[in-house]
């Protein structure tokens, strides 16, 4: 079964169209990477998936059910979670409060999930009483992903995984993601500008340009493709 199936998706802001006929899918336990130039619609795409932006047309199926008309809260309840661009943390609240809010749709399991997230990210445990606004960029990214994990997602979506983070932190977070996939069978969509990293952690990838998918394939194949290497990996 496919976790996510998107067909001919169109979306935009006001009357400016951003996404044009986007079709893609995510299989069970699969990590799918999305990359492409700035402004190509990657974040817009994730907003449509989580439901904070209404699509103009096309279909969205999650676990074989149409979700176009579901509000974000219902999508989260069914297992979709987003670590958004800009992180959208509650900066005036503590780390632990942020995490608990991630379990809004899943309160019965908030205690056990809290422990789980703290095991994945011990840094967060140490900072649990601090305000989210006082964390470093890397810690905020961990918090953003940790908060998304609190709802026990089946499909975890992460926007700008590595943006602004030191390589060591990125490796740490990427390791955790792969662990989560292994231990919990979570599927993921990872938007990542650092193409070598994107292809390294994913099974398949889609390339966005001007709101369209212009290339796609298995990550190991894309990694070897000349057009990709020239445009995105700056190697000749």
């Amino acid at each position: 079964m496919r976790v996510l199936e998107v067909s001919d998706l169109e979306a935009g802001y006001g009357d400016v169209q951003v996404l044009r006929s986007v079709s893609m899918h995510v299989n069970e336990e699969e990590v799918v990477a999305i990359f492409g130039s700035n402004g190509s619609g990657k974040s817009t795409f994730l907003k449509v998936l989580i439901g904070t932006l209404k699509p103009w047309g096309g279909t969205l199926k999650y676990m074989d059910h149409h979700i176009e008309d579901l509000p974000p809260e219902e999508r989260v309840r069914r297992g979709m979670a987003l670590a958004a661009e800009g992180r959208k943390l509650f900066l005036g609240m503590t780390v632990e409060e942020n995490l608990l809010l991630g379990a809004w749709t899943n309160r019965e399991r908030s205690k056990e999930n809290l422990e789980k997230v703290y095991t994945y990210f011990p840094d967060l445990y140490r900072k649990r009483k601090d305000l989210a606004g006082d964390l470093s960029g890397g810690q905020q990214q961990m918090l953003s992903i940790g908060r998304a994990l609190m709802s026990n997602p089946k499909l975890l979506m992460i926007d700008e995984l590595s943006l602004g983070l030191a390589p060591a932190v990125v490796t740490k977070i990427a390791d955790v993601l792969l662990r989560i996939r292994e231990e919990e069978g979570v599927s993921m969509i990872v938007v990542e500008q650092e193409v070598s990293l994107a292809l390294d952690i994913s099974d398949r990838a889609y390339v966005f340009d001007l709101g369209e998918i212009v290339d796609e394939g298995r990550s190991e194949d894309l990694l070897r493709r000349d057009s990709i290497r020239k445009t995105y990996l700056s190697v000749l």
């Binding site: 904070t52 974000p72 809260e73 999508r75 958004a84 709802s151």
Partner: peptide, 9 residues
């Protein structure tokens, strides 16, 4: 928006 993505209406 942060509230929306954790599932708060």
């Amino acid at each position: 928006e942060g509230a929306q993505i954790v599932g708060i209406s």
